Amino acid sequence: TEEYTYTDKEKADRAAKEWANRGYTVTVTQDGPTYRVRVG
C-alpha cells in the first residue's frame, strides 16, 4: 500500500482515476486541507 498526499482536490481525483484505470484499488480520504490517495 502506498499513500500520496495532495493539497489540490482536482489533482487527487486525477491521480485516483489514473491508478484505478491501471487496476489498483484506490481510496481517497480528506484530511483537513489535504487529500490522501491510498493505492493498493
Score class of each variant (00 low, 15 high):
9 K>D: 03
2 E>W: 15
19 W>V: 02
34 T>M: 13
40 G>R: 13
6 Y>R: 00
4 Y>A: 03
10 E>L: 09
11 K>Y: 08
37 V>E: 00
13 D>P: 00
21 N>I: 10
25 T>R: 10
3 E>V: 13
16 A>Y: 05
19 W>F: 09
6 Y>T: 05
29 T>I: 14
22 R>L: 13
32 G>Y: 03
1 T>P: 11
11 K>L: 14
5 T>D: 06
17 K>M: 12
22 R>W: 07
14 R>I: 12
3 E>M: 08
30 Q>N: 07
35 Y>R: 01
34 T>Y: 15
27 T>Y: 09
2 E>M: 15
9 K>Q: 07
34 T>V: 15
7 T>H: 11
35 Y>Q: 01
19 W>Q: 02
3 E>D: 08
3 E>I: 12
27 T>F: 07
31 D>T: 07
39 V>T: 03
2 E>V: 15
4 Y>Q: 04
7 T>V: 09
18 E>K: 08
11 K>V: 12
35 Y>G: 00
39 V>E: 01
15 A>T: 06
13 D>V: 12
38 R>H: 14
29 T>H: 10
30 Q>Y: 07
14 R>L: 12
38 R>F: 13
5 T>E: 10
5 T>P: 04
12 A>S: 04
9 K>S: 07
14 R>E: 13
29 T>A: 07
36 R>Q: 07
19 W>E: 01
18 E>H: 12
35 Y>M: 03
28 V>L: 07
4 Y>N: 03
14 R>P: 01
32 G>E: 02
10 E>A: 12
2 E>P: 08
14 R>Y: 10
3 E>W: 11
7 T>G: 08
4 Y>H: 05
32 G>K: 01
5 T>S: 08
6 Y>Q: 00
6 Y>N: 01
17 K>W: 11
21 N>D: 14
7 T>A: 10
25 T>K: 11
17 K>R: 13
18 E>M: 12
29 T>Y: 14
11 K>R: 10
6 Y>V: 02
7 T>Q: 10
29 T>M: 10
18 E>V: 08
40 G>Y: 15
11 K>S: 15
18 E>S: 08
28 V>W: 03
31 D>K: 06
29 T>Q: 08
34 T>Q: 08
16 A>V: 06
29 T>L: 12
26 V>R: 00
40 G>N: 13
1 T>N: 09
32 G>W: 03
9 K>T: 04
16 A>S: 05
37 V>M: 04
24 Y>K: 04
3 E>A: 05
9 K>I: 06
32 G>F: 03
36 R>F: 12
14 R>W: 11
2 E>Y: 15
4 Y>T: 04
40 G>A: 14
27 T>Q: 08
14 R>K: 13
26 V>Y: 02
33 P>S: 13
